[in-house]
């Protein structure tokens, strides 16, 4: 009996090597996600050429209720990070470097560990693609970006990660649209994004039964969509271009509304604006002037705007 001890321990010796190998690899792969995120601000601050001028819009902080609701799911991001994300999108370095770790049957072994990073990557990649082509990146294109020079894929792209990553894109587009509203001509861009996100939401709906967690993300997409819709209704209704009223009268009322109300009231602004027959240019100016003071605390922004729109105060 005692002689059995030796074979048993030698058996377990092999298991130890196997389990250690598995645990080490698993930890390495979980960390893949980390270099993708923190390095993005660093890269942009290093003075590299800017990626796309169109996203150089001023970032509009979401109203507080938005942060509370989505604090867990989505942290508000600064534009530096967003630009960096696009850079990251063009350079799947961290994933590429680990390709041998994911070769063969290993990919599916560690898919759950890799998937958050992969989704983050797809989100960034699809955002960059949208900015360039105004369309949704195809499955094949994502897979191509995850292939070596001769087109051999590092690993098969899971449909679930592809769809879930795209689902995250809608949140990113929401921020893009909302901040675009502040810019001249941004409101038409916002409505374009709005239509695009609406399309995405409809397309993803049919996949929800197949993919776990997609329905959760669809809910977030709906909320994003709602925010864009509310934001996009800044667009003035199609009325015939009337002569501009006196600047004082034009500025007074909308600014008060914009300053005090959260974005959800944008609809109301659009409706009321029609009463004053504001030309779109003037409205653009109003909104962007307001937004430039938005980040400051309430009192400051009030005074700042007050100074600009002096007639209102008197």
């Amino acid at each position: 009996m005692a002689s059995d001890a030796a074979p048993i321990t030698s058996l377990f010796d092999a298991f130890r090597a196997d389990l250690d190998d598995h645990n080490d690899r698993r930890e390495r792969l979980i960390k893949v996600r980390q270099p993708l995120l923190p390095r993005t601000p660093r890269r942009t601050s290093a003075g590299q050429p800017r990626c796309d001028d169109r996203v150089q819009t001023r970032y509009l902080p979401p109203p507080p209720h938005h942060q509370r609701k989505h604090g867990r799911l989505r942290r508000p991001r600064d534009p530096r990070r967003r630009r960096g994300q696009q850079k990251a999108a063009r350079d799947p370095g961290p994933l590429q470097g680990h390709a041998p770790e994911l070769a063969g049957d290993r990919f599916w072994h560690y898919q759950q560990n890799v998937s958050p990073g992969l989704q983050e990557y797809i989100e960034a990649l699809s955002f960059a693609h949208y900015l360039e082509h105004r369309s949704l990146i195809t499955y094949a294109a994502v897979q191509r970006s995850l292939s070596d020079d001769v087109g051999g894929p590092y690993f098969p792209l899971p449909v679930s990660d592809y769809l879930l990553g795209l689902s995250d894109l809608t949140g990113e587009l929401m921020r893009f649209a909302i901040s675009a509203i502040a810019k001249r001509g941004g409101r038409s861009k916002a409505s374009e994004v709005c239509a695009f996100v609406r399309g995405c939401k409809a397309d993803f709906e049919i996949f929800t039964p197949h993919i776990r967690d997609l329905s959760k993300k669809q809910r977030v997409t709906s909320q994003s969509l709602q925010k864009i819709e509310e934001g996009a209704s800044f667009c003035p209704p199609a009325s015939d271009p009337a002569p501009c009223p006196s600047p004082a009268a034009a500025c007074a009322i909308p600014v008060v509304l914009i300053r005090r109300l959260p974005l959800t009231a944008a609809y109301a602004i659009a409706v009321r604006t029609s009463e004053y027959d504001l030309p779109p240019d003037l409205l653009d100016d109003l909104v962007s002037r307001h937004v430039s003071g938005y980040g400051l605390d309430e009192g400051d922004s009030g005074r700042g705007l007050g100074a600009q729109t002096a007639p209102r105060e008197r």
């Binding site: 009996m1 005692a2 059995d4 001890a5 048993i8 321990t9 058996l11 377990f12 010796d13 298991f15 130890r16 389990l19 250690d20 645990n23």
Partner: peptide, 20 residues
């Protein structure tokens, strides 16, 4: 008694593993 010897061997084997 046989079981005891056997199980202790197995346990010694398990003790060698770094389990997460």
């Amino acid at each position: 008694i046989r079981i005891s010897v056997f199980v202790k061997d197995v346990f010694a084997g398990f003790s060698m593993l770094n389990l997460k």
